[in-house]
Every structure is written in structure tokens, then in C-alpha cells.
């Protein structure tokens, strides 16, 4: 199927503050779309509206042409996986396996089937964290925890994956690792990924397309080269930057100069 996710004119308000104002976006299978924009521009809100965690005031999100509001919570959760921004804050001692198994909830009523166990084990293996399976999540490093969260979302067997700042707490090595895995997984499983991200260089390197938000409005959307121009960044972030066409591996490279 060609098109996986379509967002049509979504608006959302927190009380009197407009967080999103008529955002349109289309994401196809096998594609990573990054959402960039300054703090408070509505990146996380957009993800939450897509996943029905927040109910938009107007506009709809369509999954393969179906209005998400008409789907049951269970159907949504079988289609969309959500990787939250904050690192794992389980209050109680869960093992990695238990936590990833939670991703199977939409398919489980009570008993864990052999298929559920197999999918969890395969996902752990796919992300290279098999040896952590019986460790407590709270004992893991930030990078490992991020992978566990990713694994849980993957265990949902979603068609669409929403990732909120997947790199924010990680060191450079883990940033690259997590995003590389994401990219590999998008190709292998033909997922549509929407990812909110702060680091523009990482966004350039790992996204097929970039959507730029400014105060809740879609400012620009397109390939990294089209969107991440010096003019756009100055307009949205109020920062002077220099954009080099090629960082040596064919991606644009952005160097901040001064706050405008």
C-alpha cells in the first residue's frame, strides 16, 4: 500500500494557547519524516495528536485512508507505535523482556502466546539487546533504555512509528546507533516513521523528508536540502547559520554562527 499516514488540518489548543494550527502532512511507508522546530513549536503535540493521546480540536489523522477517531483504541495501537521522549521511568522493577512484552498488549487478552514470546525475542535480537533480556530496566544506560523503548514499540508490529526525541539523552555513538537501527528497520519492515528531533544535522542525515514547524504552523516541508536552508532556519529559529552543501558524505551540514 502506497500511503500510510495522512494528517489533515490538525489544530490543537492547550487552554487559550494555540499549539497546532492547521498542520497537513503525509508520510509514506518506508519513509522517515523528521519534524523540526524550536522548543514549543508543537512537535510533541503533533505526535500525540496523531496517536490520539491528545484529541485535536479540528482536523483528522488518517491511517491508510481511515479516520483514526473511528478506530478503536485497540486498532490504533495495532497500527501506531509510540516511543516517548522521557527515558524509562518505571517505578517498579520490570525486566527488559517484561517491558517489551507490554508492546504485545494489543494482541494479548491474558495469556502470553508462543508467538508473542517469539516476537519479543526476535525484536530484542534485532536491536542487539538480547543479552539484556532478564536485566532490570532501571539498571540500564540511557542508550540501552532508548533501545528497549524502541523494541517495545516494534513489538506492537505497527505500520507507523512515532518517535519523540529519540536521541535527546544519548551520547554521539548511541545517537548514531539508534538512528541507524531506525533507518534499517524502516527499510526492512516498510514502516512509516515520524520523528520529532532537535539535532538538525542528524535530521539531515537520517530523514527522507523534513517538516519544519513554527509556532504550531507548518512552515516548510520537503527534502532536507529544500527545507534546511539558511533563510528558513533564520526565520524559524532566529539564528544565523551557515549551511555547507556537503559534509563529505553527501549530506548538508549546518554550522550555527550567532543568535540573530
Amino acid at each position: 500500500m502506497a500511503m500510510n499516514l495522512e494528517v489533515r488540518g490538525i489544530s490543537f489548543r492547550y487552554g487559550s494557547i494555540t499549539a497546532l494550527d492547521g498542520v497537513d502532512l503525509t508520510v509514506d511507508a518506508g519513509e522517515i519524516v523528521s519534524i523540526v522546530g524550536p522548543n514549543g513549536s508543537g512537535k510533541t503535540t503533533l505526535l500525540k495528536c496523531i496517536d490520539n493521546i491528545l484529541r485535536p480540536k479540528s482536523g483528522v489523522a488518517l491511517i491508510m485512508g481511515n479516520d483514526i477517531n473511528k478506530l478503536s483504541l485497540k486498532e490504533i495501537s495495532k497500527t501506531i507505535g509510540y516511543v516517548p521522549q522521557t527515558s524509562v521511568r518505571t517505578i517498579f522493577p520490570f525486566t527488559v523482556f517484561d517491558l517489551v512484552l507490554m508492546g504485545r498488549k494489543p494482541y494479548i487478552s491474558w495469556e502470553v502466546s508462543k508467538r508473542d514470546r517469539r516476537i519479543v525475542a526476535e525484536t530484542l535480537d534485532f536491536l542487539g539487546i538480547s543479552e539484556l533480556a532478564m536485566r532490570y530496566v532501571s539498571e540500564l544506560s540511557g542508550g540501552e533504555q532508548q533501545k528497549v523503548l524502541l523494541a517495545r514499540a516494534l513489538a506492537q508490529e505497527p505500520r507507523v512509528l512515532l518517535m519523540d526525541e529519540p536521541t535527546s539523552n544519548l551520547d554521539i555513538k548511541h545517537q548514531l546507533e539508534v538512528l541507524s537501527i531506525t533507518k534499517q528497520m524502516v527499510k526492512e519492515k516498510s514502516l512509516a516513521v515520524v520523528m520529532a528531533i532537535h539535532d538538525l544535522n542528524l535530521a539531515c542525515r537520517f530523514s527522507d523528508r523534513i517538516a519544519m514547524l513554527k509556532r504550531g504552523k507548518l512552515f516548510a516541508v520537503g527534502t532536507p536540502e529544500e527545507v534546511l536552508t539558511e533563510a528558513n532556519i533564520k526565520e524559524v529559529y532566529e539564528v544565523e547559520v551557515k549551511v555547507f552543501k556537503d559534509d563529505g558524505r553527501g549530506y548538508p551540514y549546518i554550522v550555527p554562527l550567532s543568535a540573530a
Binding site: 490520539n52 507505535g81 509510540y82 516517548p84 507490554m102 494489543p106 491474558w110 517495545r152
Partner: peptide
């Protein structure tokens, strides 16, 4: 199951259909 997932956070729980 609901309690398990809710202890991992409100948003995750909602995204898992709870």
C-alpha cells in the same frame, strides 16, 4: 496488563490502547 503498562507512563499506556 493495564497496570503493568500504566506503570510505564500515561502516554505509553494510551498509545498501547488503554
Amino acid at each position: 496488563w493495564n497496570l503493568n503498562i500504566m506503570s510505564a507512563g500515561e502516554e505509553v499506556a494510551r498509545s498501547l490502547g488503554i
